[in-house]
Amino acid sequence: MQRYILRRLLLTIPALLGVTILVSAMVRLLPGDAVALMLQEYNSYAQDAEDLRARLGLNKPFHVQYLDWIGGIARGDLGNSLRDQTPIRDELATRLPVTLELGLLGLLISLLIAIPLGVYSAVRQDTISDYLARSGAIAMLAIPGFWFGTLAITLPALWFKWTPPLRYTRLSEDPGKNLGQMILPAVILGIGLSGSLMRLTRAQMLEVLRQDYIRTSRAKGLNERATIFRHALRNAIIPIITLLGLQMAVLIGGAVVLESIFVLPGMGRYLLESLNSRDYPVVQAIVLIFASMIIMVNLVVDLMYAWLDPRIRYS
């Protein structure tokens, strides 16, 4: 097991290298660069632009720029923003917790919605309640998050003269206030995720409920609730966790949108802003962090897989 984890961890390195090379190349293929945006219309002073590019190292060949950057990463240095030379590490230190909190809350809420609804739907397969539950789940999935967000911010302001606070309070400063600001976007994020989770839960439950051991436990006279929750759900949960791993990307996409609407100073907004200002090292650093997180989550998912399902053993 330990060897397996070690091997997996080692294998993440080429994957991460691949991701960073790709993203470094892609952002540089985008039209314009940071200098063009800093100088804006004053770009006509061509010499200034070239001097600035030289100062920022933007005129070096791609592989040199990349190696410089990745060398910094190896030394634990995420580099500086091109725009104002502030260390990216400081910026991420304040922004990452915001997105993590939003993501985890969203995940929690989606599980709270999806699992009970999915189990219920499976137990009552092909009844009106099943149809309603599933329609509801898909309806939630079918409404774009930005639209939900717009409604959630506009209508309460119109009807009750209320909005969630617009000046972000950190969790460490005032947890209650922080939660008050986080809860709406987290619910919207959770609702968006819960659709597919609920449907998978239902499908898994249907499959598991047919298994022999469930029949056995029913036959033994174990009560239905215990059967469902102790035996069936535990076995159905494995693929659900897999899906959660794959949903990370959805989570990040949702964070970009909801952080903008609810004025949360998170990574998603930072990523988009940096992309729009062609701040290459920032984009690269954020992508590196997101990618590492996704890979780690998927690793943990695979390990949980083994832990939950005794039939799987890793060699």
């Binding site: 994957a15 990040i252 998927n298």
Partner: peptide
């Protein structure tokens, strides 16, 4: 899978 979709 690890490449953030939004960037792509």
């Amino acid at each position: 899978v690890a490449f953030p979709a939004i960037i792509l």
